[in-house]
Amino acid sequence: MGLYQVTIAITIGIYIILTMGLNIITGYTGQVSLGHAAFFGVGAYASAILSVRHGFPFWAALPVAIIATALVGAVLGAVSTRLREDSLAITTIGINFVVVSVFKYSSFFGGALGIGGIRYPSFFGHMLTKPEYLPVVAACVALGIWFDRRLVRSWLGLALRAVGQDEAAAESLGVDSPRFKIVAFMIGTAYAGAAGSLYAHFMSFISPQDFGFPMSISIISMAVFGGLGTLRGAILGSCVLGLAPEVFRPLVDYRNLMYGAMLLLMMRFMPQGLIGDGSVIWERIRSLFAARRLPGRADERGGV
């Protein structure tokens, strides 16, 4: 693997973590967030400030960044319980703009120049190189996948999906939707915090525009492109849309055009996403494995 491939792999890993988090908020719990990049930024800045100014090692900055981001996410979650669907979507755009403004106009966050000099993590006194950083990112992705699977099988995950599919019905069965929405936002933004921390230590330099609204659009596009509400969709969507700019690199002048057209055509002709529940491709894959299904829970989330 050359350095170029390593860079792409790390970038896609970070995308996967971001998209998995958003999938918990928007896919499972049904709360459309168009400001996920703001939390990516909170995690990145928290980690950067802790390690550059306060000498935290990566291994300590990462968990603190995750917790800090989840707390900010809880605030957004609390706001979201007061808003209905589309107002929430727009408000999250607003939160994204406001957070970026704070980064940009406050000297504490380094202003428009951002923060530099963030180092790769050290491991027993040895500072990791870029190829050695890849396993760290991969481990975080694996941890994220494991956590998501645990979540989906837990009462919490069941309640989140219930809130996402019919809030009134969920309430009538004892699920207090405000509380569960806040939890969903906390978990989803914690993922973004982890991604932010990984990103900061990978790039060594971060600036406000890395976390702007276009980034939020990229993340939600990945989730929807792969198949919203499924982990496999989040992962595949991140890989496909993460690779797309590289694949289209020879057509650099038409990159945005291709990206827009891909989104547009996908939504128009395969609104369930590439391998979302009910998409043609996923139905085909499932029928291949139909024989192995257990009766009683046949149609449930077959596999990942």
Binding site: R161, Q165, D166, A170, D277, D299, E300
Partner: peptide, 9 residues
């Protein structure tokens, strides 16, 4: 009001 994308179970 069902949870339409969940199984009956």
């Amino acid at each position: 009001r069902s949870f339409p994308r969940m199984t009956v179970l």
